[in-house]
């Protein structure tokens, strides 16, 4: 079965893909800090950050449509949270509406905060998607590990990433087996069968966990997963890091 949708573009060959994942991680954190701490009124700054991000996306050769599609998955959550802000923030009234007995007033201050949350969230999301789609998950984890992220967390994520495909496969196979044996039947019956399947899936996952542990022990596992890490910073990495740092600072100071 194909699951290429999870890391579809992580094998491309581009400047961005070739960068050391640690460099990308540091750049991401720095960019997020810069974006988040920008004053809400400096529109030009936001536009410039936007342009910078799109240049990076262009360099990475990842189709821009793909990145947009990804961002559409996340942005609704931001919207749901942010949509109420304009109504609750006190300040100069921009408009008021009443639906029956409910009075809603929108304030300029509220709109400003709303715009601020939205634009910062969107720019940050774009940055994160770019990092996630241009880096192999295993490399990303190694970078986290290398930067002293708790081992336990990277280990859990690593197993999750490895076995999510296996579990999805198992679920699909079970579902097919069920579908090919259920002809008609009440909806309630299907729900019941599904709940059994989830139970079986849980037990299978548990048993697989045991077998994987035995396989690890057979190869000398002693409580710590160790991997070879040989990230080396080269010239491109340094240049990228410096350029990005300068650009971020320059954009920030452009309109004092």
């Amino acid at each position: 079965m194909k699951h290429s949708f999870i890391d579809e573009y992580s094998d491309l060959d581009s400047l961005i893909h070739r960068l050391d994942p640690r460099v990308k991680l540091v750049t991401l954190v720095a960019s997020l800090l810069f974006i988040i701490s920008t004053r809400p009124t400096s529109f030009v700054t936001f536009v410039l950050y936007g342009i910078l991000i799109f240049i990076l996306i262009g360099l990475s050769k990842i189709p821009i449509g793909f990145i947009f599609k990804r961002s559409l998955v996340i942005i609704p959550f931001v919207l749901i949270i942010a949509i109420f802000i304009p109504f609750f923030k006190k300040g100069q009234v921009a408009g008021s509406y009443s639906f029956g007995s409910v009075h809603l007033t929108v304030t300029y201050e509220g709109l400003m905060v709303f715009w601020n949350v939205l634009v910062k969230a969107y720019l940050s999301i774009l940055c994160m998607i770019l990092l996630a789609t241009s880096t192999k998950f295993s490399n990303l984890l190694k970078a986290f590990e290398n930067m002293k992220c708790p081992k336990l967390m990277t280990m859990i994520l690593s197993f999750m990433h490895r076995y999510i495909y296996v579990l999805v496969d198992e679920m699909m196979r079970m579902k097919r087996a069920k579908d090919s044996r259920t002809v008609g039947g009440k909806r309630w019956f299907h729900v019941k069968a599904l709940s059994h399947m989830v139970g079986v899936l849980f037990i299978r996952a548990y048993e697989r966990g045991e077998r994987v542990y035995l396989a690890m022990c057979s190869r000398g596992f002693s409580g710590q997963i160790r991997t070879l890490q040989d990230f080396k910073l080269n010239k491109t990495d340094f240049c990228f890091l410096l350029t990005m740092a300068m650009l971020l600072i320059a954009i920030r100071t452009i309109r004092r």
Binding site: K136, F137, S158, R162, Y163, V166, R211, V212, A215, M216
Partner: peptide, 9 residues
Amino acid sequence: PDDQLFMPT
């Protein structure tokens, strides 16, 4: 082999 291969790469 899914038990034997547990690392990401």
